[in-house]
Write a protein that binds this DNA or RNA. Structure first.
Lengths: 170, 170
DNA sequence: CGCTAATTGACAGCATACTGACAATATGGC
DNA sequence: GCCATATTGTCAGTATGCTGTCAATTAGCG
């Protein structure tokens, strides 16, 4: 048979591309997050940072970046905004003069408790249109793919455990 | 049994959230795209715009925004960059003085032909770590979810067919 | 101890994204 | 034809994201 695949260039080159679907879904996810949490004026990135600082009190910006896999340059601005909102504090490290340690303020901890149910609702809403079994399947495949592609990203995720061992492992 | 579910707040609140996984995967996808296409200095958004302009010669910015589901304000800058690179042209509409019609230049069409194989390779790389059957499953579920959540996004996708009927349908 | 190399936070510059606003222009109902 | 309304492109402002650079500081090695 003749090769009928002479690439006619249709919009399918965009619509069916995984990268395009990931972008669209990310935008939808942010939109739903902001809508559910609008009474608190907190972004998804800021939320992740708050969770990480709560889980690792006294963490520094560089390790925070590794724990949530966000770019270090971007995180500088995020931290500044969280600080100006009074949600976190920055204190100089007693040993290393370069480092500034991050902790939640009472306001930050309080906001975190209040907003978590709303975030949970937002996360549920994103997958709502799918059947429960499909939600589970999609989430499992996605988590797997993100993990397997970890090193392909600009800022690979280095979870807490990995971080603690980094010194020993060199 | 006692309710042991007092929400201890761990990083799982971030790592297992669909929104976080969508964000990570989007970043990974962009990273792979840029790497594969680095010889052309074209972004995923610019690529999608070029495809759409090629498919709809003489489209205006507002309809372009609907066809690829990108924000109109953002698209203004994208169009300007594509124009300054010499990949597209903007000509005033003869009827409506507000409108500027978009078409590919020869350079734009040429670049599109050359870059498409690289984009295909990038798209394949994103899903590479999964088994072929899992790739198909993930893509199908993702396409379904994006479609079902279409109205939840800031800029819902209005594909070509829908667009042509918008006038008639009011 | 002293020098090189690495780390840390910060910054400049570019590219998406979204919100809200605006002037110019079109459109529809009357 | 007029006027309220809608549309189009644009802009300012804010918030991620990435690249590259920088000064200050620290760590490692000879």
């Amino acid at each position: 048979m003749p090769n009928s695949k002479q690439s006619p260039i249709t919009m399918d080159a965009v619509y069916t591309a995984p990268g395009y679907l990931f972008r669209r879904m990310q935008q939808i996810a942010v939109s739903i997050f902001i809508e559910e949490c609008r009474q608190f004026d907190l972004t998804p990135v800021q939320y992740a940072a708050l969770i990480a600082i709560h889980t690792h009190p006294g963490i520094d910006a560089t390790r925070l970046s590794a724990v949530i896999a966000f770019d270090r340059s971007t995180l500088g601005n995020v931290i500044e905004r969280l600080q100006s909102k009074g949600l976190i504090e920055r204190k100089p490290d007693s040993g290393d003069k370069r480092v500034k340690l991050l902790t939640l303020t009472k306001q930050g901890a309080s906001l975190l408790r209040e907003i978590m149910p709303l975030v949970d609702r937002a996360q549920a809403r994103m997958l709502q249109p799918l059947k429960p079994s499909d939600r589970k399947m999609l989430l499992a495949l996605l988590a797997q793919l993100v993990d397997l592609n970890n090193e392909a990203s600009r800022v690979p995720l280095r979870a807490e455990d990995a971080l603690e061992h980094l010194g020993k492992l060199g």
